[in-house]
């Protein structure tokens, strides 16, 4: 479903993403794990066709992210790092707009909206203006927006940031349930989140992939925690330790 081959991205002289390769199969929930500034958002923006890669290539849902970006856009749901909400719209109006531009059939739009409202626990704020929502609710509306058109591939950039512990548990549950019929790629810098939600982990550090592994293979001999600390470079151990200690 997602195949990344030697993807690179430079901002001027600065290389933010270097030779990143990994795959995500259908039905997998892949955790894209790395400390702050590792290049997670940059990689995700390339996969979601927002940023063009400097070199390398990737296919999402079987289509090339550069040459067939239109096809990719039709098949992905994407939650950017900052939920892309229009403050002056109510949650319902906003979801209707997104449903329109994502090509949800008119006949089923109403039922799709009520379904995602329920799935993301935002039924009670549906008449509120997006600008009046708290951070956690903004995040959930962002998530609702990403799944309204039932995309094959769902890409989430730090879906649980800004949520309180109870919300985190609910959203993780939701993501797990999405994994049943979609492919999910989610970025995070919270290590326990990966072991709780994902069935595959890709660790990125300073723009390079340092490890790619199924969780089932991993826990046999070592814990994810050990692997992560070993795989990120020595200078980053402080950063990395912070990831390990964070989160629920």
């Amino acid at each position: 479903m997602i195949e990344v081959r030697n993807l690179c991205k430079s901002y001027g002289d600065y290389k933010a993403v270097i030779d990143v390769s990994f795959t995500a199969a259908k039905g997998q929930i892949v955790g894209f794990l790395g400390p702050n500034g590792a290049g997670k958002t940059t990689t995700i923006r390339m996969l979601s066709t927002f940023l063009p890669p400097t070199s390398g290539s990737a296919t999402v849902a079987g289509f090339d992210i550069v040459a067939q970006s239109d096809e990719v856009r039709r098949r992905i749901g994407y939650l950017p790092e900052n939920p892309p909400l229009y403050g002056e719209m109510t949650v319902e109006e906003y979801l209707r707009f997104v449903g329109d531009i994502k090509g949800v059939p008119r006949a089923s739009l109403r039922s799709r909206i009520s379904e995602v409202l329920e799935r993301c626990f935002i039924v009670d704020v549906r008449r509120k203006l997006c600008q009046h929502l708290s951070r956690g609710y903004r995040q959930r509306v962002g998530l609702a927006q990403a799944i309204i058109h039932e995309p094959e591939v769902i890409i989430l950039d730090e879906p649980t940031s800004g949520l309180d512990p109870r919300q985190i548990i609910e959203i993780r549950q939701l993501i797990k349930s999405l994994g049943r019929d979609h492919t999910v790629l989610l970025s995070t810098h919270i290590l326990p989140e990966v072991s709780m939600v994902c069935n595959k982990v890709v660790i990125i550090s300073r723009g390079r992939v340092v490890m790619e592994s199924l969780l089932s293979e991993l826990s046999r001999d070592k814990s994810l925690e050990q692997v992560f600390l070993e795989s990120v470079s020595r200078e980053e151990v402080v950063d990395a330790a912070a990831c390990v200690n964070q989160g629920a």
Binding site: R45, S48, T49, F50, D70, R73, R74, I76, Y78, P80, N82, P84, L85, Y86, G87, V98, I101, K102, G103, Q145
Partner: peptide, 11 residues
């Protein structure tokens, strides 16, 4: 406000 990211990644 970043809603451009939504527009540009939509079909």
């Amino acid at each position: 406000r970043g809603t451009f990211e939504l527009l540009l990644t939509s079909p």
